[in-house]
Design a binder for these strands. Sequence first.
DNA 1: GAGTGGTCTAGACCACTGC
DNA 2: CAGTGGTCTAGACCACTCA
Lengths: 227, 227
Amino acid sequence: MAGDKLPSEAQLMKHYEVARMTARQAIQELRSEGRVVAEQGRGVFVSQPVQVRRLASERFARRHREAGLAAFGVEAEKTGFTPRVDQLEVSTASPPDEIRDRLRLGDGGDVVVRSRRYLADGQPVETAVSYVPASIAAGSPIVADDTGPGGIYARLEELGHELDHFTEEVSARMPTADERRRLQLTDGVPVMVVLRTAYDTTGRPVEVCDTLKAAPAYVLEYDIPAR
Amino acid sequence: MAGDKLPSEAQLMKHYEVARMTARQAIQELRSEGRVVAEQGRGVFVSQPVQVRRLASERFARRHREAGLAAFGVEAEKTGFTPRVDQLEVSTASPPDEIRDRLRLGDGGDVVVRSRRYLADGQPVETAVSYVPASIAAGSPIVADDTGPGGIYARLEELGHELDHFTEEVSARMPTADERRRLQLTDGVPVMVVLRTAYDTTGRPVEVCDTLKAAPAYVLEYDIPAR
DNA sequence: GAGTGGTCTAGACCACTGC
DNA sequence: CAGTGGTCTAGACCACTCA
């Protein structure tokens, strides 16, 4: 059953009369299928079935920001999980080219970088890095650890950048070893990469958010007009 | 470079003065990221990069249908690849529950099923299965092998179902062995699943399309209003 | 047959967990 | 501290590829 502990490697070796690496590999099979999770110093446990979070584009509606909810909070309330954010780091730096292009920055412009990890019921499900032009964010709550009710987007609107629309670029791939660790993914679990750009009503890109989601935990929903 | 052969395990052991299992594990990291592919008896090779196709939601604009282009044709023209469709199968059947729900069919309603595979420059990149209620499609060009200029959506509009909008549900996972064969994927390459539902102006769902895309070949672009 | 990756045994030290 | 999984060395046999 979910949460149950598997026999330890030592027990498996004894019981099946195999070498440790053989027992480990059997466990590795289960891990790569995502059926069990290893915790160092504790044991190997049968995975909790992954609850799927449906992310509708509705999560960026202004009324949510006005109600003091950031996007992850909207999903938490809707899906009924307990949200948490950790590994928060805020800095000012020169952005990667990919980001620079999307923000239409010249060669010189720095950005405020907000990196964090999102957890649902204690389980890491997403990492996100936001980039806001320093010319917009400097001295605002966007550089504070806690951006306040409604998150970055609410603060951007208070700074006079009324949001008009977002674009999201969605792709999927296997995670790097680092990413796998940070999202506590087992082998063989892919990630979705969502690169979101926020535009204000003047058409200026005011934020780019680079997110990495544990693929099994998410379904993204989008609405497309037939025009 | 792509296609290049990595040093063999024996060479790595000698060069870095490590045990074989250590060299193997380093290679395993790269394999799980899909960056290299191991072939028994031959060696380990750098994966071929797949050309990325950006799929903007714009591909469903009515003007394209009126110009006689289906969505895949729009992308082909924009990206400059040669499109091809094969493995086409058309039938009438009782749909899976997942589809039945989205089409809001009663227990009895059959659907026309159009299954096909898309190739770009000869390389399989996507499989798709469309489901249209038989009550709509029966006797129309939708059941023909060639649906004609503008594809299914153009025919649906001619049948009086003017399209209003689509929803797309995007997820990612590892392919099954069958799916891997059909898309000619190597080990460790994930797929994106896009389930699209088309609604007419009366709010009725008139088609569901279940697509499977080779993840490395695609970036999906969506536009989200801030409202 | 030489070279390759796939799999296995046997044993070591380490880092982390929880009592 | 004992028990756990993480990582490493050292060596073996096998299946497969290719000249």
